[in-house]
């Protein structure tokens, strides 16, 4: 039979676990949001690792 006694202590532990969980989730959201904003602010980046580089000579 499972132990069912709920001590008052469990409530406090639960509040800590939920709190830390929410903080971590918030931190992930912030890192993700900042990444999106920062990348958008950089704007379109010309790629030098493909063939579509204007002015680059194509030698074969």
């Amino acid at each position: 039979m499972a132990i069912q006694a709920e001590h008052e202590l469990h409530g406090r532990r639960k509040s800590r676990n939920v709190g830390v969980g929410l903080v971590l989730a918030g931190f992930i959201a912030i890192i993700f949001g900042l990444t999106v904003v920062k990348v958008e602010q950089i704007g379109a980046v010309d790629g030098f690792d493909n063939a579509n580089v204007p002015g680059a000579a194509v030698t074969q």
Partner: peptide
Amino acid sequence: DISVHTPEREAEFGDYFA
């Protein structure tokens, strides 16, 4: 008694926030 192992009142999240 479980409280034997926790002599002081264990903190909840609000205590850290405080």
